[in-house]
């Protein structure tokens, strides 16, 4: 189905249901779709499983979603930062689940999920705690590999720099990170774009995410900076 352009972030996320698995793009604040996350807080659905590299900062964006008790489980590689107190408190009190995944395995699980690959073997984590209970197999090179499963989600929340009306996306520098692969791995991909241009205005040679992976677009012309919000002492809502 072709892409639809919605007027508000709230409209874009209003179809997200209780108990959904939600991929949220970004690495720290770079590429984090803060406006879409705040709309998801306004929407209020709970019992979510969220996939992100981290677990939020301060009390805005992903951290605010967690603080609002909408997240049952985090799947991430690094839930720690100097300002990740919301997650840490809930985790220590047993109020949120954590599935810790090595960063490359997390990326590959998302890529595989988006490519229709149910599982794959990787050398990452072999011989460590994170491989306990997982199937392993020795291949021709005499190394052991761990079986990991692809991630297929209900929804992806994505931030991009420029989108065209067909849903083709480009990103800004290292704000690309998990966003393109997450676009591929969800039943519904919702994108906030700083700029939306007419079809044909993005050089097809320069498209990073082809529109087939995108379902909904919202124009967010001047996205907030998470660190600025934190510096200003803002917490959401």
């Amino acid at each position: 189905m072709s892409v639809s352009v919605l007027n508000t972030c709230f409209d874009a996320v209003s179809s997200i249901r209780e108990g959904s698995t939600v991929l949220i793009g970004g690495f720290g604040e770079a590429g984090s779709p803060v406006e879409l996350i705040h709309a998801l807080i306004d929407h209020g659905v709970r019992d979510l499983t969220v996939v992100n590299n981290n677990a939020g900062n301060g009390e805005v964006g992903l951290a605010a979603l967690i603080k609002n008790r909408q997240v049952r489980k985090m799947i991430c590689s690094f839930p720690k930062s100097s300002r990740s107190t919301v997650f840490e408190q809930l985790y220590r009190s047993g109020s949120i689940e954590l599935e810790l995944v090595p960063q490359g395995t997390l990326a590959e699980r998302i890529r595989a999920g988006g490519a229709g690959i149910p599982a794959f073997f990787t050398a990452t984590s072999i011989g460590t705690q994170l491989a306990i209970g997982k199937e392993s197999r020795r291949f021709k090179d005499s190394r052991d590999y761990v079986l990991e499963f692809g991630i297929q989600a209900d929804v992806a929340l994505i931030k991009c720099a420029t989108a065209d009306e067909k849903g083709n996306l480009t990103f800004n520098k290292t704000a690309r990170n998990f966003n393109p692969i997450m676009c591929t791995a969800a039943l519904e991909t919702i994108v906030q774009a700083s700029e939306i241009v007419k079809a044909g205005e993005i050089d097809p040679e320069c498209v990073i995410t082809p529109g087939v992976f995108v379902n909904k677009l919202v124009h967010v012309p001047s996205p907030v900076s998470e660190s600025q919000l934190i510096e200003d002492g803002i917490s959401y809502p």
Binding site: S77, P79, S84, F87, Y91, L98, L100, P102, T105, A123
Partner: peptide, 16 residues
């Protein structure tokens, strides 16, 4: 027990 586990990309780097 009360440490917040965080691995990042370290396991991928040493494996590859």
């Amino acid at each position: 027990p009360d440490a917040i586990p965080a691995v990042g990309g370290a396991m991928d780097l040493v494996a590859g």
